[in-house]
Design a protein around this nucleic acid. Structure first.
Lengths: 337, 337
DNA sequence: AAGGTTTCCGAAAACGGTTCCGCAAAAAGG
DNA sequence: CCTTTTTGCGGAACCGTTTTCGGAAACCTT
């Protein structure tokens, strides 16, 4: 079975390869009749241009990479959805790389991406990424990187985030207004932009309402449930159990729910819970979970849009833009008074 | 800034390009000293081989495509996780394509994939794909396709599924044993392998327990919530409301929960619910949801393994294998007597 | 020392497109 | 009718690797 490529088309039509190529790209200096002949044969033989030959020659791959910590996560899967919707529209291809929150994996992935495999990168950094020199290196190679949600401040590029500080403030305020005095903040990384901003909001809300922050109520969990559970179990079964929990990520809220069930702690009577979450079933939980919900799909869409805009017009000097989308606080029964 | 490619390395080392190439691939007929010199410079300059040049030359891309209906879905995101874990281990790259359950999109994606962009494909077909000629076409081009979960029977290739018939039977049996007499089966596609097999299990369980199947209880919903809700609302608010629901997919169980809340129908007192689902919060719902849980991560891993095995040894004539993994029925309060 | 083997490396041809350059023939202009 | 311009197409270089083929030098062998 002979391959169907330009050479094949050219031979069957008695044309030069270059002519066929230009006809297919609808170049202005090929006659309409020739174009028609070419199109028809191409259609008939189901010709699909070899993307690798094209990428090699044009030094453009029409492919982007999405580098994220995990995919089995409502926020990221919605974001991917948004990214893919724009990519498909623009005719781009999407490569997925998962770091599993592992710094080393992130390094090796970014290193590989220096190869020119992709035209641009959408990234949300791993929880234990302290150093961003690997990203700087990539950026210095001239490959556009756009951060979304979990950003790195060491690189001058565009960022798409939500209003994490405000949301942190409002979440805490909400708990306070629901009567909580001892509010625990559950973080899962010391290095992440988002957890730190959310924590700042938390701390300043406490201050604003004249509640003295308690270091023992700032709980550093992990992205690994196996490590988080013991820490949380200790918190919840201890003498000075908090009366409010602000979980900076969904996973920790779910852990809290499970532990409250195990420890016979009543939500919201004994303890109130609010969490950042994109759980579609938040309203169906027992009790329904008060959430700060990020517009994950829109973040993905926006990030992809910004990247593609940059890729299409690389002539104009690029201006990094910081887009901040608003999250919504949706009160439900887990913080009911 | 000069590009760092083989030519550059060759020039700086006063070697031929071919020599550098072979040194980097650790070819046996390059002397150890030369290899060392090459490795060191490559390291120093952070050389990454151009994947497109390599793919073009070798006619292999070390890239696979994952074609699925959606990603914001617990089953598929877990499956991707499994796929990616194997791919990363084997040094393969993963392209994601979403059909959004749209037949036309599936056609255009598969058509494009004839280009040689990927070495193999992992696929779960869209809900309204009736005709699989586009997949046959792709398969005829010699590109390995492995189906997982939602398979097509028109192509002779490997399939990774779960025991859908058995699970359908057991789910129905479970409802019957919990006292249900009028069990509705919620499907969302007439063409899908999985929904049909699950339905067969449902029907044969009814028969086995001498319950006459009622056509009006086989409800064809949609992958679009906007269409499913009216249909389900009619079912649940009608005179002859079922006393048991078997949802073939998670989405329909969630819809049922929402509608039962809206219509003040008590689960499990008025109606019992069981569903195929990979919801991590199934046990936290109100009431906790009895599920048939598929080993989604393992399905992804297995599908990827089978594909890679086929890709690595394409010398041996390929035998299609059908792997069936077991789902687990996890009884919870939504079917409590 | 002549012949035969290794050892190590270079030259060059692919892979399948894209694109610059140029050249005939046809059309237009005077 | 001759010159100039336009139109339509072919030739060939190039993108960065891989790989085949072959060749020179060094190493044995007898």
């Amino acid at each position: 079975m002979e391959p169907v490529n330009l050479k094949r088309l050219a031979k069957e039509l008695n044309l030069a390869i270059s002519t066929v190529s230009r006809a297919l790209r609808d170049s202005y200096d090929i006659s309409p009749e020739t174009k028609k002949r070419v199109f028809e044969l191409a259609q008939k033989l189901n010709y699909e241009p070899n993307p690798y030959a094209s990428s090699l020659r044009k030094q453009k791959s029409r492919t982007i990479a999405v580098v994220i910590p995990e995919v089995a996560n409502n926020f990221f899967s919605l974001a991917i959805n948004g990214i893919e919707s724009i990519a498909q529209e623009k005719g781009y291809h999407v490569l997925i790389y998962l770091t599993h929150e592992d710094y080393q994996k992130e390094v090796s992935i970014t290193r590989h991406l220096q190869s020119g495999r992709v035209d641009g990168i959408l990234m949300s950094v791993a929880a234990n990424t302290e150093n961003s020199s690997h990203i700087v290196e990539l950026h210095n190679k001239g490959i556009p990187i756009i951060f979304f949600d979990r950003v790195s401040d060491d690189i001058d590029t565009s960022r798409i985030t939500t209003d994490d500080y405000d949301s942190g403030f409002k979440a805490t305020e909400h708990l306070i207004q629901c009567g909580c005095k001892q509010i625990a903040y559950l973080s899962f990384s010391q290095h992440l932009s988002i957890t730190n901003k959310r924590m700042r909001g938390y701390l300043e809300a406490l201050e604003h309402y004249n509640i003295k922050p308690d270091r023992k109520l700032i709980i550093l969990c992990s992205s690994d449930n196996g490590q988080s559970y013991p820490v949380l179990r200790k918190l919840l079964s201890g003498k000075k159990r908090p009366d409010g929990i602000f979980a900076s990520v969904e996973k920790l809220a779910i852990a809290s729910y499970h532990l409250c069930e195990e420890l016979k702690i009543d939500i919201p009577k004994d303890i109130k819970v609010i969490s950042f979450s994109n759980l579609e079933t938040a309203s169906l939980l027992n009790p329904s979970l008060t959430t700060i919900t990020q517009p994950a799909f829109d973040i993905g869409k926006k990030a992809a849009s910004v990247l593609f805009r940059r890729l299409e017009k690389n002539k104009t000097p690029f201006m990094s833009e910081t887009v901040v989308l608003k999250s919504a606080l949706i009160p439900r029964n887990s913080t009911k008074v």
